[in-house]
Amino acid sequence: MRQSAISVESLEKFFPPARAGWAALAQPFARPTVCALSGISFEIGHGEAIALIGANGAGKSTLLRILTTLLLPTSGRARIAGFDLVREPAAVRRQLGFHTGSDASFYARMSARENLLFFGALNNLSPAECRRRVNELAELLRLEAWLDRQVRTLSTGLVHRLGLARALLHKPAVLLLDEPTRSLDPVAAAEFRRFLKADILLRGGTTLLFSSHSISEVEQLAGRLLLLDAGRLIAFDAPARVRESTGAASLEEAMEILVRRATEAAA
């Protein structure tokens, strides 16, 4: 049987309560008691595009950071391409490409090319292979004209495309994007989505999990969506089926209904 691209079983994450002043010195040793994720289970197949949605604080970034090995889960298990996140983090990172969605995750005084070659080297690409991949991706993401400019001179849209290029350098099986169009203007966001759809999803067969607050982005890119509310998974289905199951006219309205139901059930 073929492994899932992403498999998550009963995942939970608790953080210690935030402390200030002198009490902050005890923060690294405090017991984690604040629930950020609770009982999350789902499976994502190879080549699927899944949107991770929910209100601010719902747990989207926490889930993505656990999947990227930047956070350790409190309990439960998660696997990327069959590799356990806690026991085999290095193998997991070989399978992953991650774009934080931040427009400040590059060395501003290095050129785009120098940044890509640097991150390629840290991802075990040989210099020749890395140069070839940088040229390929620059062509794919239409970055050629900007490759030798310092990153600090690039527009936000270009930096996001550069972030996507970096995430794709080592040909990862799974691509994780945290609100990739967060700081883009509508035109740049639409262009970014077109890249993702036409060049990454349709051409490459890469599994995509992305968080987003944009309903149109979700409808345009995702085959299914994961809806989180207060750390719980309250829907995991195709956008159209989520709409139909709630009898809502729009996906936005369906989300409101599902969140209301979950809140009432929890109360």
Partner: peptide, 18 residues
């Protein structure tokens, strides 16, 4: 502070090597 730590830590390079 410059936002590169997460990008460095998701590469296939361990923090001691970095």
């Amino acid at each position: 502070e410059n936002g590169t730590l997460e990008s460095l830590l998701v590469t296939q390079t361990s923090l001691p090597v970095i």
